[in-house]
Nucleic acid binder design. Structure first.
Lengths: 335, 335
DNA sequence: ATGAAAGCGCTAACAG
DNA sequence: CTGTTAGCGCTTTCAT
C-alpha cells in the first residue's frame, strides 16, 4: 500500500505538497498538481484514514443506534440517514441493539473511542441521565422517539396532532364507540397518540371506556393486534372504530374482524399508523397516518451535521409533517 | 479527552505500561495493573481508535455493501452479520447502494483507505474483474448472490436444489401445467431457480412452454407479481401451479387469482420463496422455501473473519440448508 | 517488570 | 509556491 511519502518521491515533491493536493488547497502550481496526481494514479494511492483521522481528530463516521434494523419503519429511516450521510461524505456505522442496553452503551462508547463523530439515536432504552451526559460531550440527535424532558436535538412528527387528526376524522364520521390499540412500551410516540385519543374523546364529550383501550405487545406484532381486536370486538357493546398505533396492528385487527364476520369498513372502521407495512397490498387498503420516514432520517443527519459543525441557532426540535391518508378501511357509521 | 499519557502520569508509570494493561499483556505486576486501572477509571479514559488503528494497521470495522437495506430479506442478513460482528468486537459500516455502482465503488474504496478490514457483498452489480481485483488484496466474501465464475468465498443456499425440491413436490401433487414467475435480473439465484424449474420439467417428461415462463420486474414487486399472474392465468390453457421466486411475487399471484375468481389452492397452487414477507399473515398461508437469512449473515461474517485472520483451509463455498415449508397455498391437482 | 524511544501516515504551522 | 518538521495517540521493540 502506497503512502504519501511514496507519492512524494514519485512526484519529486515534499509530502506537504502531496497533502495540499489531496486536500485541494489552491496554493499549488497547476503543473505540480498534475505531476502529483499522476503519481497518485500510478501508485493507486489512497490516503490512510486512520492517519488522517488521528491527525484531524475526526472520523467522518456517524453512529446509528437502532433497536431493530429489521423493522421496516427503522430501515426506511436508516436509508434516509445513509443517503444524507453519503452526500456529506460520511459513512454510517450501524449498531443494531435489539433493545439490549449493553449494546447501546457499547455503541455510544464509540464516540469516546473516537470511532465516530456523532450519533443518531432511534428509540433507545437508556435512562435519561446517561444520554444527557453523552450529549454534553458529543453531537447526538434523537430520531422519531425521544426523552421528553431532555434538551437534546430531536426530529419527529407531531404524534399528538396526528392522533387528534385521526380522531377528528373518525368522530366526524359519526362514530361514538371508538377504541384504540396502543402498546405497553414507553415511547413518547405511544404516550402522545394515546393522549390525543383521550383528549379528542373528552373534547367531543364522548365517554372514555377502559374496555376500549387495549394494549398490544411492545413490538406491535400482527398477532397481538389480532388478539387485542378479538377482545375488543367480542364485548357486548363493541366499538365501531379502532384506532391502531401501527399498520401491522391494524392489519391484525382487520384479520380478527374478518374472522368474526365483522365487515371492514361497513361494520368497523380501522385506522393504522406509519404507512410502511403493506397498507395497500390487500383490501381493504388501510386508512392511516403516513410518516415521512426517509425524510426523518435525512433531516436527522442534517441536524447532526449542523451540531458536528458547531453551527449556532440550530432548531433543536424539528417536527416534520405527517399525512393523513384516507383509504378503504374507514367509513361513516352505518347503524 | 484523556490520553494514554494522562493515564501514565496519573498512575506514575510509563505509557508503555498503560498500553500493556490496556492490551492485557501479562507481564505487568498485579498492583501496577490495579493502579493503572484506577487511573483509567478516574480519567474515564478510552483509547483513541484512530491512533490504535494507525499503529496496528487494522480497524476492527467491516464493510457491508447492500443494494437495499429496506428489503427485509437483506435486513435480516444484515442483522445476522451485525450480531456476529459484534461478538467478535467488530463494527459494521453499512453501504446502501440502491444498485448504484458508484456507491459500490465508493464503498469498496474504504478498504483501500483503511477504514475497514474486509467486506461482505450482498448482491452487487460490479463487473467481475472489479471484484476479483479487490479480492486479491482484501478479504471479501459474497453473501447470497455471487459471481459464478469467480473464486471468491461465498455463502448461499443451494438455489438449484431448492427449485427442484419445489418442482418435485408440485409434480408429485399431480400438476402438469406448471408456470414460473421469475425475474429479468441477472442474479445467480434467479438463474439457478429457473434452471431447476426447467430441468425438473424435462426430467419428468413434461413439456416446457414459453408462455408459462413469466418475467417479473427486477425488484420482485407485488404489483409485477400480480400482473405476471394475470397474464399467466388468462391464457386458454392456464397453469394449475405457479412457482414464484419470491414471496411477494406469490402474494401478488394469489391476489391476481382471487380477483379472477380462481381459488388457491383448490384451483391453483402457488409457491413462494424466501419466507420473509408476511407468508403467514393472510390466508392462504404460503407454501415456500425458507432461507436461513440470519444464519447466512452470521456465517458470512465467520468466513470473512477467517479470511481476515488468514486462516488456511477455509471452505470458500458455503452452502446453508434451506427448508421447504408446506402451508396452505398448495394442493393436489383437483381436475 | 518497566521505561525510553521509534514510528504508523498524515496535516499544518512555520520558514523560506 | 514549496519544503521542513513537529506532532496526533498508540503499540512495540530494545534496553535495563
Amino acid at each position: 500500500m502506497a503512502t504519501i511519502t511514496d507519492v512524494a518521491k514519485e512526484a519529486n515533491v515534499s509530502v506537504a505538497t502531496v497533502s495540499r493536493v489531496l486536500n485541494k488547497k489552491n496554493s499549488v502550481k497547476p503543473e505540480t498538481v498534475e505531476r502529483v496526481q499522476k503519481a497518485i494514479e500510478k501508485l493507486s494511492f489512497e490516503p490512510n484514514m486512520s492517519a488522517r483521522n488521528l491527525r484531524r481528530n475526526e472520523t467522518r463516521v456517524i453512529l446509528i443506534i437502532a433497536p431493530n434494523i429489521t423493522n421496516p419503519y427503522y430501515s426506511h429511516i436508516l436509508a434516509g440517514i445513509g443517503d444524507a450521510a453519503n452526500e456529506s461524505k460520511y459513512s454510517a456505522l450501524i449498531y443494531n441493539t435489539s433493545g439490549d442496553i449493553a449494546r447501546e452503551k457499547a455503541g455510544l462508547e464509540m464516540l469516546k473511542k473516537k470511532r465516530a463523530d456523532g450519533a443518531i439515536l432511534l428509540a433507545n432504552g437508556m435512562n435519561s441521565t446517561w444520554i444527557q451526559e453523552y450529549s454534553k460531550e458529543y453531537p447526538i440527535v434523537q430520531c422519531s422517539e425521544y426523552a421528553l424532558k431532555l434538551d437534546i436535538p430531536r426530529i419527529s412528527i407531531d404524534n399528538y396532532k396526528a392522533a387528534t387528526d385521526v380522531m377528528n376524522y373518525v368522530i366526524g364520521l359519526g362514530h361514538k364507540r371508538i377504541a384504540t390499540i396502543s402498546s405497553s412500551n414507553n415511547y413518547v410516540s405511544t404516550a402522545l397518540r394515546l393522549q390525543g385519543y383521550l383528549d379528542s374523546l373528552k373534547c367531543h364529550d364522548l365517554e372514555i371506556h377502559k374496555e376500549y383501550i387495549s394494549m398490544a405487545s411492545v413490538d406491535y406484532s400482527f398477532k397481538s393486534g389480532k388478539s387485542c381486536a378479538y377482545e375488543l370486538l367480542q364485548q357486548k357493546y363493541r366499538p365501531t372504530a379502532i384506532f391502531c398505533i401501527s399498520d401491522i396492528l391494524a392489519l391484525g385487527a382487520i384479520t380478527a374482524a374478518s374472522e368474526l364476520g365483522i365487515r371492514v369498513p361497513e361494520d368497523l372502521t380501522v385506522i393504522g399508523f406509519d404507512d410502511v407495512d403493506n397498507t395497500t397490498m390487500f383490501h381493504p387498503y388501510i386508512t392511516t397516518i403516513a410518516q415521512p420516514c426517509y425524510e426523518l432520517g435525512k433531516e436527522s443527519f442534517r441536524i447532526l451535521n449542523a451540531c458536528m459543525n458547531d453551527e449556532k441557532g440550530i432548531n433543536k426540535k424539528i417536527v416534520l409533517p405527517h399525512k393523513f391518508i384516507i383509504r378503504e378501511s374507514s367509513a361513516p357509521i352505518s347503524i
